[in-house]
């Protein structure tokens, strides 16, 4: 394991949404700050910096991760996915994002990136979730605007659409 010097900046390199990125960080720099302020990937938000609100959730090497509880140096060499990487293209929304828009599942949108990441990750592995499962999954996220139920509805909607799409393309 490389030893990092506390008062030095070290290069951190990883893959962000499929593209290689590199910037420097002090060992104490949080991944959330690194993404936002070093890389300009400001879609990931910071709501508490102590692991409760879920706004900062990203995917690191296939695992849901609180970027506010992760040091930038820890993800050196990893594969990261953030909210900037879930739309099929810059001017098109993905199925989950469209379901959010259709169901009014966001108001201020500050919590949304983290919730999208959790759902995107979860639906990839569990295509037919129940409402209870979605509620359980999202209990690690705080939204102060929506009262949650439109978010749950959007998730179930997206799951149904993803499943039927898959069935059509499989057929």
């Amino acid at each position: 394991m490389t030893r990092l010097k506390a008062d030095r900046r070290h290069a951190v390199r990883f893959s962000l949404n499929g593209k290689p990125v590199e910037a420097e960080a002090e060992p104490r720099m949080l991944l959330s700050d690194f993404l936002r302020h070093q890389l300009g990937a400001t879609g990931t938000h910071v709501g508490c910096e102590h692991g409760v609100c879920g706004a900062c959730t990203v995917v690191v090497d296939g695992m849901l991760t609180r970027s506010c509880l992760t040091l930038a140096a820890q993800v050196d060499g990893c594969e990261l996915k953030t909210v900037e990487g879930i739309a099929p293209s810059a001017d098109r929304l993905g199925v989950l994002q469209q379901a959010f828009r259709r169901n009014h599942a966001l108001q201020c949108g500050f919590c949304t990136a983290g919730i999208l990441m959790s759902l995107d990750h979860y639906l990839g592995k569990n295509p037919n979730p129940t409402e209870a499962e979605i509620r359980d999954l999202l209990s690690g996220h705080i939204c102060r605007c929506t009262g949650y139920t439109p978010i749950i509805q959007a998730a179930l909607d997206a799951a149904a659409e993803l499943t039927s799409k898959k069935e059509t393309s499989d057929a």
């Binding site: 990931t44 953030t82 909210v83 900037e84 739309a87 929304l93 959010f100 966001l106 949108g109």
Partner: peptide, 9 residues
Amino acid sequence: DAALLSGRG
């Protein structure tokens, strides 16, 4: 919504 859902808020 489009911007907020894509991390472009």
